[in-house]
Design a protein around this nucleic acid. Sequence first.
DNA 1: CATGGAATCTAACTAGAATTCGAAATCATG
DNA 2: CATGATTTCGAATTCTAGTTAGATTCCATG
Lengths: 210, 210
Amino acid sequence: MAETTERRAAEAPTSKSARTRERILDAAAHVLSRKGYAGTRLADVAAHAQLQAPTIYYHFASRDELIEEVMWVGAARVHAHVVAELEALPAETSPLDRILTAVEAHLRYELLISDYTTASIRNANQVPEGLRAKAAAEEAAYARLWRDLFTAAMDAGQLRSDLDITVTRMLLLGAMNWAAEWWNPRHRTLDDLVRATQDMVRYGMAPATA
Amino acid sequence: MAETTERRAAEAPTSKSARTRERILDAAAHVLSRKGYAGTRLADVAAHAQLQAPTIYYHFASRDELIEEVMWVGAARVHAHVVAELEALPAETSPLDRILTAVEAHLRYELLISDYTTASIRNANQVPEGLRAKAAAEEAAYARLWRDLFTAAMDAGQLRSDLDITVTRMLLLGAMNWAAEWWNPRHRTLDDLVRATQDMVRYGMAPATA
DNA sequence: CATGGAATCTAACTAGAATTCGAAATCATG
DNA sequence: CATGATTTCGAATTCTAGTTAGATTCCATG
């Protein structure tokens, strides 16, 4: 987490214009993640960013361009975060442990840090094709990362040999993405959620003897 | 205006009015599942139902009432389908096998049979509060069904004793719900998806020996 | 075949929201 | 403090889409 703060500090916008632009993007991510593509009103975004709607046009060419950037940034930031966490691991870390680390990184970023991620996740299928190009490319790269993690674990014999790693990978990502719809920090700590997800990966639900 | 208080919606439509009403509902479910709440245009719904937009008002009082019914029907129908499949099981079926049956029933209904289910799933968090009451009540009842399935399996010793059944249940439902976002019958059969999901429940990903 | 209710249509109204434009306010700098 | 550039705003424009009203077509029945 200190790492994230550091990275954010490094990317901290300097000029006033850049800071306002970032505030608008943040507000758009917030609204987009809750109201969906068609339901995102520039007036709402402006209110969250504490300015008037027309001001947005000084920083973005159009509503669609603003949304396109939110979607793209959302996908790019989880990806970068997970990559960073994986690279921080000791070189000898086993493939299965790398998957468990990726699980934790994905959940933490999605649920704690970023409205962008939930915005891009929830609207992946609602946004018009034209706006999806950059985001889709990022998502494809992120999917490759996960595919490689699973392939490595399978090659190392750390996964059931009859496991359908393509389907299972999507099921796992789905379980994590959906957590944004129901997880409530008042009912369960994020630590508990992370642990339950990792246990699910390792052990399933049934006792080992079954 | 046709009687709006009518309850038996899923049965075979008799009158011409009832059939048209059903066609509009089907079209609304289709559009809603793809465009989201705010993106659902009555003109699109009308086009899918092969009629003009104002005709919808002969069968529904407003756009919101139409959408409310789609959301409610969506939740109610999966629930009813899963219940029916469970009741068809022999009385001596083990709690774990009942969970696996529910998994299969949920996936098949969601992915094969019903646009309503995906519509209600995808829009649960986007629809305004006022429209969510009936759907939310249905979803709560459905959640209780799953909770009872898990509790029974835990009591029977068919789940790991340290399993967090609340979180795990939501992870499982999330994995299944998310499948609507990515599952493509051209890449994987539904049978394969069902099997992979059930295996995930039973065995997790790692080999039993690990 | 006539008739009246049921069902659907076309045309018009209206509200909301993206966008544009020119004025006003703010800010950096000499 | 003055001035020009940067940034923000209020007002006006335009387009979209829900809704209403009234006319028209469909259809069962005597």
